[in-house]
């Protein structure tokens, strides 16, 4: 798979040093383990700012980060067009929170200064009036994935252009903070190669169906169901109760 000669699935965690604030690198652990438990060899690469990033990963994951780190991360991605090209044409990418904003067209910080994103998705982000913090539930638009649960902690208001669809329709919480074409509050974005969201948790730990969707997209393989202990109890905690 991907850029390696053998059939190992390679998952690249982009800038874990800058975009690791909300433990989103756990998403890579979830992807790798769910692949291994299906008999697919998997490897996780931590891609830090001081290396030339490999362009042959099957899946890239980006997480949330603090304001300053977000600026640094954006600049770093812009300096590595080959990586951005791989994300556009060959790999599958999961981008969470600041990572999601970075992949968009533009962002502006709290002082109102606007700067360009990587431009892989047609999304623009501006700061909202207050921080959105708390549990989120959405209905995911990807067929078969069902409800998504996660924890949001951000200040961004993200507008998704009509050419894209948000990843989920918000049932509870804020998400993008903007309505989709049908007038529903949306969260994140879904394209053929990119899944963006505001949900931490990490999002794939709480939503294994979304993890399997990414694995299927990256490998082209149909995956057997997995029954992980505690997983259903976890989802019940956040989806059925009006938990805080």
């Amino acid at each position: 798979m991907g850029g390696t000669a053998d059939s190992t699935l390679v998952i690249g965690v982009l800038l874990p040093d800058a975009l690791g604030t909300y433990s989103d690198s756990g998403n890579a652990v979830v992807l790798a383990q769910r692949a291994r438990w299906r008999g697919i060899a998997a490897r996780v690469l931590q891609i830090t700012a001081d290396v030339t990033p490999p362009t042959g990963c099957d899946i890239y994951v980006l997480g949330g980060g603090e304001d300053q780190a977000q600026v640094t991360a954006t600049r770093w991605l812009q300096q590595h067009p080959a990586l951005v090209g791989a994300m556009e044409t060959s790999a599958v990418t999961l981008a969470v929170c600041a990572g999601f904003q970075i992949l968009g067209r533009s962002m502006s910080d709290r002082s109102g200064h606007s700067y360009s994103g990587v431009g892989l998705i047609d999304v623009t982000t501006v700061p909202g009036p207050r921080r959105a913090v708390g549990q989120v539930i959405t209905h995911c638009v990807i067929p078969g994935v069902g409800q998504l649960t996660g924890f949001e902690n951000h200040r961004g208001i993200s507008t998704v252009a009509a050419s894209h669809v948000p990843l989920g329709r918000v049932v509870r919480g804020t998400g993008n903070g903007t309505p989709d074409a049908a007038g529903h509050l949306g969260d994140g974005v879904w394209t053929d190669r990119i899944v963006g969201t505001y949900l931490h948790g990490p999002v794939l730990a709480r939503n294994p169906a979304l993890a399997d969707h990414l694995l299927t997209t990256a490998t082209g393989r149909t995956l057997d169901p997995l029954d992980l202990p505690d997983q259903q109890a976890l989802r019940r905690t956040y989806l059925q109760r009006s938990s805080r």
Partner: peptide, 9 residues
């Protein structure tokens, strides 16, 4: 349950 899922992974 959150902890259990984490430990499994």
């Amino acid at each position: 349950a959150d902890l259990g899922v984490r430990l499994s992974y």
